[in-house]
Simulated scan of single mutants.
Amino acid sequence: MKLCSLFSGGKDSTFALHWAVLKGFEVECLVTIIPRRKDSWMFQYNNVELTRYQAEVLGLPLLSINSSGEKDVELTDLRKALEMVKSQEATGIVTGALLSDYQRMNINILSSELGLKVYSPLWRKDQERYMRELVEYGFEFIITSATAYGFPFDLVGKVINREDVERILERARKFGFNPAFEGGEAETFVVNAPLFKRKLIVEGKPVKLGEFEWEYQIERIH
C-alpha cells in the first residue's frame, strides 16, 4: 500500500514514518504544512520549513503547503494537503499523532471524506516508554524550543541522549508537564534516524525569550 507521511521534522512524525517503512508500506512522499502562526492548533510551527534537509537525507520527495495557522480556517489547508496526497496516487497517510483528539479527529474526518486511510502508530502510546525507545532505536533529535515550567532548559539545542531523557521524564513527573511534549511544552528537530542516509549537522544558538521560554535558533544545516 502506498502512503504519504504528514511530516513536521520532529520526533513523532519521523518515528511514524519509520514505523510505516518497517511495516512494509511504500512511502511515496513527505507532506509538510507550514503555518504562519506560532499558535496553530493543528501544525508544528518551529523549523518546519527545514524539513527539506530531512527529505534530502531520507531520499523522499517533499510536498509543502502554506497554512494560515488560524483555528478552523487551517482545516481548509489540511484538506488541500490531503488532496495532494491523493494526487500522488497514495491510498493513505501516516501521522505522528500522540494525544491530541482535536488533531486526530480532524485528520481522520477529512481523510475519510477523501477516501484515505489513516495510520497513527503512536496514538495513546505510553509516553515515558516511547521517549526511551526513541533513543534506543537510534533517533537523534535536538530540543528546538521549550516553554514548560520545570523543564531542564540547558538541554535546548542539545542532541538528546539516554541520560537527558531520564532527566526530562523525572522533571515531567515532578512538575506535571507532558513527558513527550504533546502539550507543546517543547518542540524537536530530528538530525539522524535509522532511515537517514547521513546525520545532519545543525549549528545555532539557544536564546532565552522569557522566564520559562527558550528557543534554539538554527543558523545553518549541512
Rank of each mutant, 00 (worst) to 15 (best):
20 A>C: 09
20 A>Y: 00
20 A>S: 13
21 V>G: 05
22 L>N: 15
23 K>V: 03
24 G>D: 12
25 F>Y: 15
26 E>A: 04
26 E>H: 03
27 V>M: 05
28 E>I: 06
28 E>K: 15
29 C>N: 06
30 L>P: 09
33 I>C: 00
34 I>R: 11
35 P>L: 05
35 P>C: 10
37 R>T: 02
40 S>K: 03
41 W>C: 05
42 M>N: 07
44 Q>L: 02
45 Y>M: 01
48 V>C: 03
49 E>H: 15
52 R>P: 02
54 Q>F: 06
55 A>S: 15
57 V>P: 07
57 V>A: 04
57 V>F: 01
59 G>A: 12
59 G>F: 00
59 G>Q: 10
59 G>K: 07
60 L>D: 06
60 L>M: 14
60 L>I: 01
63 L>D: 03
65 I>H: 05
67 S>D: 04
70 E>H: 11
72 D>K: 08
74 E>K: 08
74 E>N: 13
77 D>F: 02
78 L>D: 08
79 R>G: 07
79 R>I: 08
81 A>E: 04
83 E>K: 13
86 K>Y: 06
86 K>A: 00
86 K>F: 01
86 K>V: 09
87 S>N: 09
88 Q>D: 01
90 A>W: 02
90 A>N: 00
90 A>C: 12
91 T>H: 07
92 G>P: 10
92 G>D: 11
92 G>Y: 01
94 V>S: 12
94 V>W: 00
94 V>K: 00
94 V>A: 00
95 T>N: 02
96 G>R: 05
98 L>K: 10
98 L>Q: 03
100 S>Y: 11
101 D>R: 09
101 D>S: 14
101 D>F: 06
104 R>A: 10
104 R>F: 06
106 N>V: 05
106 N>I: 05
108 N>I: 10
110 L>D: 00
111 S>A: 15
112 S>R: 13
113 E>S: 03
114 L>N: 03
114 L>T: 04
115 G>S: 02
117 K>F: 01
118 V>Q: 04
118 V>I: 04
119 Y>D: 03
119 Y>K: 04
121 P>D: 12
121 P>Q: 09
122 L>V: 11
124 R>S: 10
125 K>E: 15
126 D>G: 12
127 Q>I: 05
127 Q>G: 00
129 R>L: 14
129 R>D: 14
130 Y>F: 15
133 E>K: 10
133 E>W: 00
134 L>W: 08
138 G>A: 12
140 E>L: 01
140 E>M: 07
141 F>I: 12
142 I>D: 14
144 T>Y: 07
145 S>H: 09
148 A>N: 01
148 A>M: 04
149 Y>H: 05
149 Y>I: 15
154 D>S: 14
154 D>Y: 14
154 D>E: 15
155 L>W: 01
155 L>C: 07
156 V>M: 10
156 V>E: 05
156 V>W: 07
157 G>F: 00
158 K>L: 06
159 V>E: 15
160 I>R: 08
160 I>C: 03
161 N>E: 15
161 N>K: 15
162 R>T: 12
163 E>Q: 14
165 V>F: 09
